[in-house]
Design a protein around this nucleic acid. Structure first.
Length: 450
RNA sequence: CGGGGCAUAGCGCAGUCUGGUAGCGCACCUGGUUUGGGACCAGGGGGUCGCAAGUUCGAAUCUUGCUGCCCCGACCA
């Protein structure tokens, strides 16, 4: 993409309302624009990031055996009256009426709808287990939205719903999501720690929040330092095998949010030097809720014995919009964003230091074409701005590699490559530059492609 | 929902107390000089001063009402 033809409204100054660093940087980098309290438009650069996050989430959901569908944003109140939640949900639910004065709502979540879809088609345990997910916009009318897309009213959520004949089956489904989540966050360049969470009215031990550590996190968390170094489940993990040893290993270390924290246990179980007390951002939440919806809504299947029973369900959420902000919280410096390779809106920022200079223009054009044909996504700054402004802008939007082409280097047949993450620059020969850069891009991506 | 604050050009702000031609920096447009870490000179465009009523000869400024937004707390992916 040529910057001169792109829509990238960056800001040199920080809008006054932005409190935390991710919000500031997202506004300055022209990723988002607030349209109303807690409601944001995603500008081209932000959308590219969002789509890449979605794609990683999607790939790992699919790998685990979950199946994608797409449910509507607007739901009928009728469904929610069946489960009893229409009255329970409170003001967070945005209620609307259509022209026939039917009660509708903008979905804050989809348990009722997915249960309705399930019960319409599935009758037998032979069709289980089943895990259906979608990535769809949600609306929760938060009392006080804040921190940009970190806590917005409208947000994108991947929500998966598992269906099993019994609790044992549900636990296996739960473990699949547990492992898929570990892989998902790792691929996004994050270290997410599963922490025991409020399990709600069902009780039991099957509810975990996935938390990343960041100074601006909203809640205080406590965990064993050992968790930070645990290996991520491998790409070829067999999701049909018994995953409980793997999951149990993760759960054998102490980790809890402040609501679930037990100071005595923490002190007793975790040696002094391994105790971590930090702030955390919740980026995922998984839980089992049994027959909470299937029973009242009549989602039943026949078991091997021919007897019909309500299915056991779980739900599993990840917020891609929140993740975009969370990744920035975890990865930035004074100059701007530092995107992990897996979600960077472009792989390479190509900077032409002297537009209008024939040699520089043609070297850039050639490099640009070669990289693009190699499948490298390039944002080519072909504008006639000054060097300093171009560097600053490129640092701000945080592309992993910056390729700098100017008359000085070209005089010696070299160009410069800067790694955003380390700040390291090196000159490479113009000859074969595209191949060398493509290799660096591939290497960067591979490091996250666990 | 309780407490606090803000609303003046795309962004950051001054002007409001003490009513009298709506300003500054950045950004934008034109021309020129520049060009390896946010250049310089000259010229220029852009505002129902959040909305509505009121007071006044005259309101960004005073009064009242409304709306939007932000922050702190309680609640949530």
């Amino acid at each position: 993409m040529r910057l001169s033809r792109y829509f990238l409204p960056t800001l040199r100054e920080t809008p006054a309302e932005a409190e935390i660093v991710s919000h500031r940087l997202m506004l300055r980098a022209g990723m988002i624009r607030q349209e109303s309290a807690g409601i944001y438009a995603w500008m081209p650069l932000g959308l590219k990031v969002l789509r890449k996050i979605e794609q990683v989430v999607r790939e790992e959901q699919n790998r685990s055996g979950a199946i994608e569908l797409l449910m509507p944003t607007i739901q009928s109140a009728e469904l929610w009256r069946e489960s009893g939640r229409y009255d329970d949900y409170g003001k967070e639910m945005l209620r609307i009426q259509d022209r026939h004065e039917r009660d509708m709502l903008f979905g804050p979540t989809n348990e009722e709808m997915i249960t309705e879809i399930f019960r319409a088609s599935i009758r037998s345990y032979r069709d289980l287990p089943l895990n259906l997910y979608h990535i769809q916009w949600k609306f929760r009318d938060e009392v006080r939205p804040r921190f940009g897309v970190m806590r917005s009213r409208e947000f994108l959520m991947k929500d998966a719903y598992s269906f099993d004949l019994d609790k044992e089956g549900a636990r296996a489904s739960y473990n699949k999501m547990f492992v898929a989540y570990l892989r998902t966050f790792k691929r996004l360049g994050l270290t997410a720690i599963p922490m025991k969470a409020e399990s709600g009215p069902i009780g039991g031990d099957m509810s975990h929040e996935f938390i990343i550590l960041a100074d601006t996190g909203e809640s205080e968390v406590f965990c064993d330092n050992s968790l930070l170094g645990l290996p991520t489940p491998a790409r070829d993990v067999d999701f049909n095998s018994d995953l409980s040893p793997m999951v149990d290993n993760w759960l054998s270390y102490y980790a809890a949010t402040s609501e679930m924290h037990e100071a005595d246990r923490f002190a007793a179980e975790v040696p002094d030097e391994r105790r971590v007390t930090a702030r955390g951002i919740e980026v995922g939440h998984i839980f089992y809720f049994g027959t909470k919806y299937s029973a009242p809504m009549g989602a039943k299947v026949a078991g091997p014995d021919g007897e019909e029973k309500p299915v056991h369900m779980g739900s599993y959420g990840i917020g891609p919009t929140r993740l975009a902000a969370a990744i920035i919280e975890a990865s930035h410096d004074d100059n701007g964003i530092i995107w992990p390779a897996s979600v960077a809106p472009f792989d390479v920022g190509l900077i032409n230091l002297r537009t209008g200079d024939e040699a520089t223009d043609s070297a850039c054009s050639k490099l640009y074409a070669e990289l693009e044909s190699d499948g490298v996504e390039v944002l080519y700054d072909d504008t006639d701005g000054r060097a300093g402004a171009k560097f600053a802008n490129m640092d701000l939007i945080g592309l992993p590699l910056q390729v700098v082409v100017g008359p000085k280097g070209l005089a010696e047949n070299t160009i410069e490559v800067k790694t955003r993450n380390s700040g390291e620059r090196k000159s490479i020969p113009l000859q074969g530059a595209a191949e060398a850069i493509a290799a660096m891009v591939a290497e960067g991506k591979q490091s996250l492609d666990v």
